[in-house]
Design a protein around this nucleic acid. Sequence first.
DNA 1: GACCCTTTTGATGCATGCAACATAGCATCG
DNA 2: CGATGCTATGTTGCATGCATCAAAAGGGTC
Lengths: 226, 226
Amino acid sequence: MQNSPDSPPPTLLERIRSKITSGELEPGNPLSEVSLAQEFDVSRTPIREVLKQLQLEGLIEIRPKVGTFIREPNRREIVELFQLKEVLEGLAAALMARRGPCPELDQLEEIVAASEVSSNAGDTDTYASQVQDFHQTLVDGADNNKLVEQYSRLMNQLAYFRLVRKTLNHPGRAVDSSREHRQILTMIQDKDPFGAETTMRAHVFASTQELLVPQTRTTLSLERDS
Amino acid sequence: MQNSPDSPPPTLLERIRSKITSGELEPGNPLSEVSLAQEFDVSRTPIREVLKQLQLEGLIEIRPKVGTFIREPNRREIVELFQLKEVLEGLAAALMARRGPCPELDQLEEIVAASEVSSNAGDTDTYASQVQDFHQTLVDGADNNKLVEQYSRLMNQLAYFRLVRKTLNHPGRAVDSSREHRQILTMIQDKDPFGAETTMRAHVFASTQELLVPQTRTTLSLERDS
DNA sequence: GACCCTTTTGATGCATGCAACATAGCATCG
DNA sequence: CGATGCTATGTTGCATGCATCAAAAGGGTC
């Protein structure tokens, strides 16, 4: 009994999507309908429906009569997606601050406390997953289902996990990031929507800059190792 | 030769979607696959693919083994969608202000000028379409394709056109709205991203309030008329 | 008359087969 | 030797048929 009773089995859509977002399949790789059909032991028809939807989500590209390929967002698209990420997470912070106490707020407190430990310890693996949790919990805590939907689509497109690790490898970013998380949490607890949103956006922007200009921090890492 | 050479014929997805968003089909109405297949002279297979995608967009609900129905967003969902609309259009205004001169900026100038005329004249029909143009042009002018995508999905879900008319029927709202448009335009021209975003968000918020609390303005209109 | 069980109906879910087309490899010709 | 046209192959696009299931309709019983 691996499954808890109320967790439905993942749909075909989710299973195929996770094959892509998990990085199991390289960008540019062709995705044959027949091979997917064999792999998941269904016919081509449901596979085709899934692929069409994944195309709509921007994860794959279906070139008619040619084939289906995993899409790799180019730099411009990544910038565009991060601009959206900034305002969506900013909105989440503001909504959560307005909302007041809720289960997600307690979770946030725990996550931030734990992440302060791991960031100071330099445990980037643990911290990376805590960063994920922080942002996801914040979006969930906004109590806006449509926001959750749009946000998850966005994160799927970014294949975010592939990128976060890179950022956090920049020494010093983890502790900075952790401090920013604490600030945001405090502002939410103080019911300061404007402050929470502004700080959140600055935080996302800073993380984005780390990602898009990786060289600067890498230079710093050399200093640390010496 | 109705079609201009570079405008592709609307896809099946677009045709069926427009049947829903145009209000041609009432919410709650069943959408049979076979009847749609007959109407568009294709088989059920492509229809099914389209319906699955429309479900993902939130426009319809597919109840397995039962049927497909046009979804009507409830009040809570509408509030959620407008919260998103606020930040997305705010982002668009900020990006456009940062961007500087562009074709869309000139279009905006023309639209605002024309809408000032129609709003003062009380021509709500004309003004309603100009409002549409204003917001769409602003989003287009942000030069962020992902934003355009998310925004259009959002507007489809809102079936916005059905609602705008109601708002503008509130006497006085049109002129207020028009004045706000002018303010936003000026701030974009002045390259003031923060001001443009803030004003845009306030504008969207005000319009939303008009929609969700229709009674207030009706009361005010009595005062104004007296 | 109300309730429950059975039947019927109509819808979707999926498998399969064929058609259409883009691409690559190869033979042919200049 | 290079360019061009042809053919082979693999892919998607779509139509159709059957299986499956939910909900309504009907009949029987209490």
